[in-house]
Amino acid sequence: MLIEEMMRTDIIKLKADDSIENALKLLNDYHIRHIPIVDDDNKVVGIVSDRDVRDASPSIFDRQSGANALKNDIQSIMSSPVITVHPLDFVEEVAAIFYDNEIACVPVTRENKLIGMITEKDLLYTLIQLTGTHEQGSQIEIKVIDRPGILPEVTQIFGKRKMNINSVLIYPYKPDKKFKILVFRIQTMNPKPTITDLQSAGYEVLWPNLPGMSL
């Protein structure tokens, strides 16, 4: 899936000379955790997180004397330079960026202009879509030899039964690298006939996959 299909385009943003107080208000009003900072050309020059703002805010024990701290410009606390992504990047790439840099949000830019935002939450939502668990279905897990052509061999068994597939995932089989586990979510309440077909074709169906269970 492409970033442009999952990004948010209703962006809450600030200029570098806006006050920290302003940022605090936006974070609270919109229940967001990151605000991109842009210049007059809508180019991303920084980003602030709710933690940056909280660090700059006076302690709850010190509200009166510290109130002036919030009058400072946002540029005094923003992170810069900012990691950005392109609308044609893939969901996997953004996942890797979040993981490697230990961050939870990136602005999306095209021709150096801010056009969207992607957060950890958007990523998880997309992941739920990819697993197909948001649609009605039954899950089947099959252990197969890791070789070219195995997937179409298995899926034609579903096709013969006119069984619609909601999603396919492929996991490594940890104990033995020669195998992979195929996870299908199929649109049926009665996976039994399909499982029987798979078994008679010689596939090992791990289902339900509870270690130590042999019922």
Partner: peptide, 9 residues
């Protein structure tokens, strides 16, 4: 649990 069983929710 819907982990394996229909409908999943």
């Amino acid at each position: 649990t819907g982990r394996y069983l229909f409908p999943g929710t």
